[in-house]
Design a protein around this nucleic acid. Structure first.
Lengths: 175, 175
DNA sequence: CTGTATCCCAGCGGATACTG
DNA sequence: CAGTATCCGCTGGGATACAG
């Protein structure tokens, strides 16, 4: 029934009062965040996704641009395909023999906000240089944001954590 | 000078033509994403940040709610403090002896969009249940979004990757 | 060019035992 | 309650060598 913690001045999220025991939050099955980390929680996975975003498709390019060892890239790509983030597609340039390329699936592309968030947070470290993401239309740099289903901008203090109701998830990816 | 890749139908990001060699993207110093992963790329780090968002502050609570071993939590918390994501603050309940609590710094709180992105991506896996984040004002679930500095919504196809100019980073965290 | 097989090391995370 | 010290297994990632 508690809505606030002992030291309110440090409260970040509010929590709805549906749980007598705050530990129910943690115990409520697997956290969605941990599920994400199981798939894209490794450096190699995100680096390969990054290069796919940048347009890399051939094994050789992905290996060279990520700087990963071939063995690591090979194993991780196979897992990414298994996990449904990438597809291995055959293609042929006329006159050459058939090759394969790795392309992001829709699920893989839906990592876009996560990727932007990672890029932005790492870029606000005081470090400079490197690749920057920008809006192709106006040239302004990209920023991660948080909205609600009704379209409101949501700040961290206006966020509420609660147990999800049964039934399908209400939140799909925004564009 | 290339703006598009060999197989345009699969191009994700466009790239500006400033680089004769596409590998310059990767070689351009450390990727900001990798810098992020060095700090929050472990399961334990993100779990502790998560619990801090949920309002956990005392060592004991953080350990129990994350399910981490004490040793792991201890080491990771120390590192999070070192990395500037958390602060260890003394406090006293009158009549009791001084205790410490871990509170997120502004830098730690700026992981909010990343956290939302991870939660949302894991929740769109077909799995159900668990904690859901919502807008305290209207009750709608939270969605990660991507905007540019001019306030436009940016989709993945309108994104351009380029080498950041010298000088301070233009992109600060949106709210 | 696109991988796979092996071997190796470092780091993450857990179990146990012990301190203030 | 709030940690630290030690030990230990597992996995991520790299090096080398080899194959279709």
């Amino acid at each position: 029934m508690e809505r606030a913690d002992l030291h309110d001045e440090h409260t970040v999220f509010t929590r709805t009062g549906e749980f007598a025991d705050r530990d129910a939050f943690t115990a409520a099955g697997w956290c969605a965040m941990e599920r994400s980390l199981e798939v894209v929680g490794t450096r190699s996975a995100m680096m390969l996704v990054r290069e796919a975003f940048y347009g890399g498709r051939r094994f050789d390019d992905l290996v060279r641009r990520t700087g990963l060892a071939e063995t690591v890239a090979s194993k991780r790509l196979r897992q990414l395909v298994t996990d449904g983030l990438m597809e291995r597609q055959p293609y042929r340039v006329p006159g050459a023999r058939t090759r394969h390329e790795y392309v992001l699936t829709e699920r893989g592309r839906s990592l876009f906000p996560l990727f932007v968030a990672l890029m932005n947070w790492g870029a606000t470290n005081g470090a400079q240089g490197g690749v920057e993401l920008a809006h192709a239309g106006c040239g302004e740099p990209l920023l991660p944001a948080v909205r609600c289903g009704a379209g409101h901008d949501v700040g961290i203090e206006e966020t509420e954590a609660r147990l999800a109701p049964f039934g399908p998830r209400s939140g799909e990816q925004g564009r």
